[in-house]
């Protein structure tokens, strides 16, 4: 059964990928890319990577697609016919693929429990992390504690992306200090959509909070929560009018919030130094090691969540307000 699902998903992935190469309507290509991500997310679930699947679904088929569509709206939606037969490209790709195939010949068989990858560093995480760090979700322990420094960098990567988008596109705060004009949403006439969206929103936010604070026990964490929260706000903006959203979450506020998120993460690390540990050594933050780790992970996940949430909305603003008078 597992094999069957695996093969079906892989087949669909191949078909989607091929379709993306040939299709020239960019809108379709973007939607196909979104489907590709969703299929990947399913594949990740079959391979036990639930956290990754969650993130891929939220980011790859969610936020990426929203951004792509927003950019498409600002640019051109049809690709020109390629002027020549790309033989060189085929050659480069062919050679690269063959080299890579050659390399995989010596890889351990798929799913082999005896592969070296499972026997050196990973066992300690699986055996010790509930005792050393606490959370039953090993991914959370590694992400936030053992390799917490990577995650700090990752938070700053998303922070950087947000700032880069703002620097390149700019956000014009037209209503700073002024009352907003009446609702001019494009979706105003879609009553069903508006009502459903309104009803869904509390659940979206509730789910985001659950993902934020329950990441220790199940799949999820600050990053996914931030993305979900931001998606809720984006739905709000799409159905009820973006000016209302801009009033509820002014962009200067979000900029501050993103910065605060990064500083919470960095500050947690600095606090460990002040209390006599190494950078990001949460064990020294509280009386016992486990309590300290718990507190540390809570704080850094909070920082990640805040930054991701605000940056996602800022990016959305930047694209959606671009072509304004």
């Amino acid at each position: 059964m597992e094999l069957f699902i695996d093969i079906t998903l892989l087949t669909f992935l191949c078909i989607t990928a091929m379709a993306i190469t040939v299709i020239r309507k960019l809108f379709c290509a973007v939607m196909l890319a979104s489907i590709f991500s969703l299929l990947c997310a399913c594949l990740f679930v079959t391979m036990d990577a639930v956290d990754v699947a969650f993130t891929e679904a939220a980011v790859g088929s969610g936020i990426s697609t929203v951004l792509m569509l927003a950019a498409l709206n600002l640019t051109h939606s049809r690709e020109k016919r390629p002027p020549h037969q790309p033989l060189v490209a085929l050659l480069v790709v062919g050679v690269t693929g063959i080299v890579l195939m050659y390399g995989t010949m010596d890889l351990p068989v798929f799913g082999d429990a005896a592969a070296p990858i499972h026997h050196h560093v990973a066992p300690r995480y699986i055996e010790q992390s509930p005792l050393e760090v606490g959370p039953p979700n090993f991914v959370t322990s590694i992400l936030a504690s053992y390799r917490g420094y990577d995650t700090l960098a990752e938070t700053i990567v998303i922070f950087t992306a947000g700032l880069s988008v703002i620097a390149l596109l700019g956000i014009r705060d037209r209503y700073a200090g002024r009352p907003i004009p009446s609702d001019r949403s494009a979706m105003k006439d879609y009553v069903v959509l508006r009502i459903v969206a309104k009803m869904l929103m509390p659940f979206v936010f509730l789910f985001a909070l659950y993902v934020q604070f329950h990441g220790d026990y199940g799949a999820g964490g600050g990053f996914q929560a931030g993305v979900i929260f931001a998606s809720g706000v984006i739905i709000h903006s799409l159905t009820l009018g973006r000016d209302r959203t801009l009033k509820a979450f002014p962009h200067q506020f979000l900029r501050g919030l993103a910065t605060v998120g990064v500083l919470i993460y960095g500050g947690t690390g600095l606090a460990s130094i002040l209390r006599g540990g190494n950078f990001l050594d949460y064990s020294v933050l509280a009386a016992t090691q486990l309590k300290g780790q718990h507190l540390g992970i809570f704080l850094v996940e909070l920082g990640v969540g805040l930054t991701v949430f605000s940056i996602m909305i800022l990016m959305y603003y930047a694209f959606s307000y671009r072509r304004e008078p």
């Binding site: 504690s145 053992y146 190494n278 950078f279 990001l280």
Partner: peptide
């Protein structure tokens, strides 16, 4: 050598 998060070498960064 500096162990980030005070995790020893191959386990931490």
């Amino acid at each position: 050598t500096y162990n980030l998060g005070n995790w020893p070498a191959p386990w931490g960064i």
